[in-house]
């Protein structure tokens, strides 16, 4: 495979793997928790690295996922004190975890080969250089394999627990009454978000992961009322955005992940303005029509 094909393939797979859990984040209104997770997994990576001293160890993945879950738990514990509002709880926890990670990295920067810049921004163009070698055979870029496994995991999770995810998303009280625990489903979803964030950080960087998760799902949400159609549209948007992003990044000679994030923002904004059902244009047309009708009824206008 040539390098451009490999990069495009990785970009598409990362984009779809991130977008799938994003569907439920957008519907549940918890996208900012994923923003927090994508920042705090850095702490998990750093801590696990101190233990293993190996950047390729699978322990890094486990450590980071655990810290992601700890973030969710800490945010919820703070929210349950009712002393701070929901969003303020997020705004307190994640900068704290993130700061601890940065202090640790800077303090031991001389000893470790771990760069905060790389974690925050990532670089897809370097992904093909990190190869996975099995039994002495080069089987392809490492990122391609890890993200494919994560994509498969996310896909299976949504396929197998579709009913549970759907009912807890739209009516948590009803779900609890028929014996589906919203808490367990919530933490399962957050596990998948954490895993995806960890897997994606070295190709995409932790801040842009949020856009990969939210953008396609939000665009799909603006176009349809059916959950299944929304998932399908999300996958299509993820693919189109990532392919267009890679092409544009190559022609402008700049960061690929950043360009995909820009394209994602643009497509989503276009859908936001022009969506036939829930778009901005439609909403203002409806509002004007209603106003006219009310005015007519009141006799203010003929």
């Amino acid at each position: 495979m040539s390098m451009i094909v490999e990069i495009t393939l990785i970009a598409v797979i990362v984009a779809i793997a991130c977008a799938l859990p994003g569907v439920f984040l957008v519907l549940r209104g918890t996208t900012l928790v994923s923003d927090a997770i994508t920042h705090t997994v850095l702490l998990g990576i750093v801590l696990a690295f101190f233990i293993t001293q190996d950047l390729n160890s699978p322990l890094l993945m486990i450590g980071a996922t655990l810290v992601g879950l700890a973030t969710v738990w800490a945010i919820e514990a703070l929210q349950n004190t009712r002393l701070v509002s929901n969003d303020a709880a997020i705004g307190i926890i994640f900068p704290l975890f993130f700061s601890i990670a940065i202090v640790l990295i800077t303090r031991y920067a001389g000893d470790i080969h771990l760069d905060a810049d790389a974690v925050i921004m990532g670089e897809l163009a370097f992904a093909p250089f990190r190869r996975l070698v099995l039994f002495g055979i080069d089987v392809g870029p490492r990122a391609l394999w890890t993200m494919s496994v994560i994509l498969l995991g996310n896909g299976l999770f949504i396929y197998l627990f579709f009913k549970e995810l759907k009912v807890t998303t739209f009516d948590a009280a009803f779900a609890a009454s028929i014996g589906i625990s919203p808490v367990i489903v919530h933490y399962a979803l957050m596990t998948s978000v954490s895993l995806t964030a960890v897997g994606a950080y070295d190709s995409v960087g932790s801040i842009l992961v949020v856009g990969f998760m939210v953008g396609p799902a939000l665009a799909a949400y603006l176009l349809t009322h059916s959950l299944k159609k929304m998932i399908g549209l999300t996958v299509i948007f993820a693919m189109v955005n990532s392919i267009a992003g890679v092409i544009l990044a190559f022609s402008f000679d700049t960061t690929i992940a950043g360009m995909i994030a820009v394209v994602t923002g643009l497509t989503t904004l276009v859908v936001f303005v022009f969506s036939p059902r829930k778009g901005l244009v439609k909403a203002s047309v409806v509002r004007r029509r209603e106003q006219k009708r009310v005015n007519q009824k009141l006799g203010l206008e003929k």
Binding site: G29, L208, G211, V214, Y221, F252, T255, M259, A261, S284
Partner: peptide, 23 residues
């Protein structure tokens, strides 16, 4: 103006503007 929730709008704008900054 539309059905988009505040958190989705924040996340989308945050990452696409930051992406543009990096570009």
């Amino acid at each position: 103006k539309t059905v988009v929730k505040l958190d989705s709008a924040l996340s989308l704008i945050l990452s696409s503007f930051f992406g543009l900054g990096l570009v």
